[in-house]
Design a protein around this nucleic acid. Structure first.
Lengths: 194, 194, 194, 194
DNA sequence: AATGAATGAGCTTTCATTCAT
DNA sequence: CATGAATGAAAGCTCATTCAT
């Protein structure tokens, strides 16, 4: 029942990913030297190559981990049975909460979105998130709660607003107090509701 | 009447900037080697350094050129005397038109937003664009045409939507037909109008 | 008794300095490419930058090493309590011995004397050597053994003669047999003695 | 009788050599970029290549010009018929005068002495100067005015002292007042006289 | 004849990756 | 297993030289 082994380095892979996350989010993939990741992870440079075949494999592993964490944070236990407005409220709150607790992850995902060095699997994951939200939106449209517009358009609008909020917040141009978040949610809802 | 000059002095400086634009937008700053820019510009590698002190000076010059082009496209002759809804319409149309005609520029600006190698002047330009829009929005709020919310929030929402549209469009998830654009505009207006 | 180690860790740093010494003495600082130093040291080009921040740091480290070696060879255990003529004899012998055993070092020091890329610490070391000899000469003047002339003049004369001998010898115009050395010493002494 | 032609650019070659002299003396051959020489000479970069086949030809031409100027300054109209002490006095005065009026030339000659890029003709000129002085010294030895030592040794001593004086003077460690020059001359004479 | 913009080989330096310890 | 010193290919940049004007 307990982890079968000593465990001291069970986390070494994650320690490396954590270090890479901070640095890639800050300086980009090409702007980050592998030895720097090693130093930040307090690990020998060679060690990284025990866990990842190459620097590209490292970003891809990281991209997947973060994308999945974010998708899980938004989708796990999502109340599909609630009315559309309530579903939207939950989605919005979760997104804001994830953003505030994982600013670096979000910055990383945004910066590496559609990068040339992401492989097929990572790209597939990109689709996946969108598809989930699109499905939910499609249901809301069917229930006549959202405008009858291309779901891709509605998704683009909502993601776009999140992105705008993230940037304004992380650049210090906007404070995300509960009041502002509530207002932002209402604005966003007005944009897409029927 | 003069010899059909192949392209005598279109300004080699601009040829270099054009090549850099494509490559930086595609592969990022650190992912683009200077000799690659030279090759794309059909210019010797050393020539770039006759026009730009360093690779960093090159991105900054490019960033300013593109930011100014975009700001001009949105702001030149802007109808500040029209009613807010009309002003918003003009802004939206201009933004979409610029986006469609200059997808690479917009992708470049987005990717290099707030990068560590942008200098003070480039950053000042970043502020400038936002400030212009914020001022217009503030006026619309005063006229009771937009919700009385922090202007930074309204700006974030509108920029965010543009960004979402750009991405969905450039990744082929959304077609920007006149009808879709009109719908998107109406959505966006609903988000911020009073 | 231990394995006849080929040269395990003679200090790669010193191996690099040795290679740089030969090349800088022969071709000058700007005339010597770093990969050439690497090749001569049988080391990868990048390795040099693990031991020295830059090519300039490399020359400076080398300059200090050689200047200190030479200063030590002349000054360590110098018989300040002996009569001036004897002190001069010791100085002369030591200088000639160092020159014959370290022609490349002396050539290097001479060639890089007062070069623009020497830093403050290296320049301070230049002063130091002169100051030592000047002090000794001042004492000899006080003992009425040397002419009462500006010490800087006496030092210039003696160093100059050494330099002349070095050049004539290393260009093959003059053999430094014991007899010639003895004669040179006597000539030099005649120049400065009271 | 007058120069046959317009003459405006009769001097262009010399203007280039003058510029090169300053720069090579200050920064060395490899440390000086040809376009810099052009700029200093107020001449187009290409112009230099009308007058000199290559950078190496340029240094060699310069080396010869300066070596010849110096040899002429010392040897032209030399009073071979005067007694040795007087000859030495003239030589010494001339050398000091040349040094003071042509510090840069002397620094250049010293720095480029025996450099790898000097060609056979330049090297031959190096010999020539020495040979002249050696001949004079040989005569003085024959007249029993100088010690019966290898002429090369005597020459090395005298050149060395000049060099020492030049350095001490140009580094500001020694002032070359008439009194000091007279003292230096006497010292030097004592070194070699019988 | 003179120019100086243009070039590309080569320089200094960095960094993804390997491998002896 | 983990390390980090070592590597060399490739990056950013400079400069001797050429050539269209």
């Amino acid at each position: 029942m307990t982890p079968p082994r000593s465990d001291p380095d069970t986390g070494k892979r994650d320690v490396i990913l954590d270090a890479a996350l901070e640095l890639f989010a800050e300086r980009g993939f090409h702007g980050t030297a592998v030895p720097l990741v090693a130093e930040r992870a307090k690990v020998g440079a060679g060690t990284i190559y025990r866990y990842f075949e190459s620097k590209e494999h490292l970003v891809n592993a990281l991209y997947r981990r973060e994308k999945q964490r974010m998708t899980a944070a938004l989708a796990d236990g999502f109340p599909f049975d609630q009315p559309p407005r309530e579903q939207f409220h939950v989605l919005f709150e979760r997104a804001i909460a994830f953003m505030k607790g994982n600013a670096i992850s979000v910055r990383f995902l945004e910066l590496h979105h559609h990068a040339a060095y992401l492989d097929a699997e990572s790209r597939a994951l990109e689709e996946h998130g969108n598809a989930l939200v699109e499905a939910a939106f499609r249901a809301s449209i069917a229930q006549l709660a959202m405008r009858d517009l291309p779901p891709a358009l509605l998704v683009a609008i909502v993601w776009g607003v999140f992105d705008g909020l993230l940037r304004a917040w992380s650049e210090g141009r906007l404070e995300l107090s509960p009041a502002v978040v509530a207002q932002a949610e209402q604005c966003c809802w007005e944009a897409i509701r029927r």
